[in-house]
Design a binder for these strands. Sequence first.
DNA 1: TTAACAATAT
DNA 2: CATATTGTTA
Length: 237
Amino acid sequence: MGEEDPESNWFSKWEQQLPKPEDLQPPSISTPSSQPNSGEFDSSELGGDEPARTLKRPRLVWTPQLHKRFVDAVAQLGIKNAVPKTIMQLMSVDGLTRENVASHLQKYRLYLKRMQGLSSGNGGGGFGSGGDPVTDRLFASSPVPPHFLHQSHPNSDNFLPYMPVAALQQQHHHQQMAGHHLHRHFGSNILGRQQPQQPGQPVHMVGAPVRNGSYVEDPQSGNEKKALSLFPFPNLG
DNA sequence: TTAACAATAT
DNA sequence: CATATTGTTA
């Protein structure tokens, strides 16, 4: 009885939160009658769901849209302030955690670094070693600000391009003391995370975790953990 | 204690 | 390979 299937809980809700299906809608999907609910599940599914903490969520699928917001946030913040927490807050993506951004940020930095050292005219048609076109595909789908490749001057403080970032408002409230639980009442937020929608861009979530394209594994059903990297990009094939 | 970062694991 | 997770340091 220990193991259960918390996935479908907040999961289905996330999907409903989709902002708008840009133009992706492959044929033969949308089969609502088939919810991968492996039967057994907790019947305590009242409005007091708090799956945000403690439960493991499926691997986040970084869609180009999500990455776009990521790069956008980093660009606005500047490399200097581009730290996971700030980026996450500026992205205003529901459900996104600091760890999620941190992990992606790490890879993104590697991507930038790689590009710097390798920006030698290799226009010849052949990507040299290591230059996996597939790997860059995601990052390539988003324009990388040029100043990203610059080194922050140790002396010059921050000269951010523009910082209307009122969203950086940190919750200078009582921080959750470790060792005690705190019951909270969520309104429309699925996750136990508050989203300070302040800045001029009251954008909501972008990017779906799963839906026509990527798929998350099923912990109960065998071991088929095949996350397909298929995003709706007819352009970048 | 939190958070960033690096290294590692899945 | 992509993301998660962990370890270490600030």
